[in-house]
Computed example of a mutant assay.
Amino acid sequence: MTALASSPLGKTSAYVERYDPSLLFPIPRQPKRDEIGIGATTPFTGADLWTAYELSWLNPRGKPQVALAHITVPCETTHIIESKSFKLYLNSFNQTVFESIEAVQQRLREDLSEAVWRGHSMRGSVGVRLVGPQAFGAELIQPLEGLSLDRLDVECTDYTPAPWHLSADPDQPPVAEVLVSDLLKSNCLVTGQPDWGSVRIAYTGAPIDQAGLLRYLVSFRQHHEFHEQCVERVFMDIWTRCRPTRLSVYARYTRRGGLDINPWRTSHPQQPPVNQRTARQ
């Protein structure tokens, strides 16, 4: 919490309308990873997929421009960006003149890359893709694909993370399954505001008890942690308790302040998911 004490989260903030990259507030990843039991070498790769729905600036003639931004932050970066500071930073574009959409894209890439590697050597840049109004029609809504755990009529009594619900049967033949749930909910680490999400778990290995997995996911309901940290906690609990040979965990959280955050972690190399919104986003 020490690093968060000086962040804008949970505080009254002035909305700056002139470009100001100093508004970005990076938070180190490692302290929460230490808490979860993740060392300097992680058992996963992946990324945090952000969508910014409220991006606007002025062209050289002073005419407002708008775009959606798809942003990919590799999970190997040393920091995440606190989401309210990200919103304030994007608002600082509102009355700022940029020569072109490409100039906006380059500015975002440079500023965000510096922030997520703050104080360390940069080992890769943040991915930024801007979608202009002419392409808004191609932004589709798609549910997470897989077998829904929510079909199960289970009794739930735990509302803080309860990994003891997780189990797999090593005496059964290995399976490859994709399981989804729309019942993920956690709370902001600082403000306590609810964070609503859907989660997709794909694994290969001994069959995981689906009822136990659903109870486990529901158990985040009163838990306070950022999106990225919740997904890494889910990954590690399944990885250590069910011991799959392959695992990926992908969550899509509903937007707040014009931003949604969608962390994805995988035990093996693969293409990242398409950053495509669900109906609730």
Rank of each mutant, 00 (worst) to 15 (best):
D34C: 06
D34E: 08
E35K: 15
E35Y: 14
I38W: 13
A40D: 11
T41C: 03
T42C: 11
T42K: 14
T45V: 02
A47E: 14
D48H: 06
D48Q: 03
W50R: 13
T51Q: 02
L55G: 00
L58S: 08
L58Q: 12
N59F: 06
P60M: 07
P60G: 06
P60N: 12
G62A: 11
G62Q: 12
K63C: 02
K63A: 08
P64R: 09
Q65A: 05
Q65K: 12
Q65Y: 04
V66D: 08
V66M: 11
A67W: 10
L68I: 08
L68K: 00
A69N: 04
H70V: 12
H70P: 09
I71Y: 02
V73T: 15
P74A: 04
C75Q: 13
C75E: 11
E76F: 07
E76V: 11
T77R: 11
T78N: 15
H79I: 05
I80P: 04
I80H: 14
I81L: 09
I81W: 02
E82D: 00
E82Y: 00
E82Q: 01
S83C: 11
K84E: 00
S85I: 00
S85G: 12
F86Y: 15
F86V: 10
K87T: 14
L88A: 04
L88N: 07
Y89F: 15
Y89P: 05
Y89H: 10
L90Y: 12
S92N: 03
S92C: 04
F93M: 08
Q95F: 01
Q95K: 01
Q95H: 02
T96W: 00
V97C: 02
F98V: 01
E99A: 13
S100G: 01
S100M: 01
I101E: 11
I101L: 02
E102M: 05
E102L: 06
A103M: 03
V104S: 04
V104W: 01
Q105G: 13
L108G: 05
R109I: 04
E110I: 09
E110S: 12
D111V: 03
L112E: 00
L112R: 01
E114V: 07
E114N: 05
A115T: 14
A115H: 10
A115P: 08
V116Q: 09
V116K: 12
G119N: 14
G119S: 15
G119T: 14
G119V: 15
H120D: 15
H120G: 09
S121A: 06
M122R: 11
M122I: 08
R123M: 07
G124N: 03
S125W: 01
G127N: 10
V128G: 07
V128K: 05
R129P: 03
F136V: 00
G137Y: 14
G137T: 12
G137K: 13
I141G: 02
I141L: 09
P143W: 12
L144R: 05
L144T: 07
L144E: 11
E145A: 13
G146S: 06
S148F: 07
S148A: 13
D150V: 05
R151M: 05
R151V: 06
L152N: 07
L152Q: 10
L152E: 07
L152K: 12
L152P: 08
D153K: 13
V154L: 10
C156L: 08
T157M: 07
D158W: 08
D158C: 14
T160M: 07
A162L: 01
W164V: 11
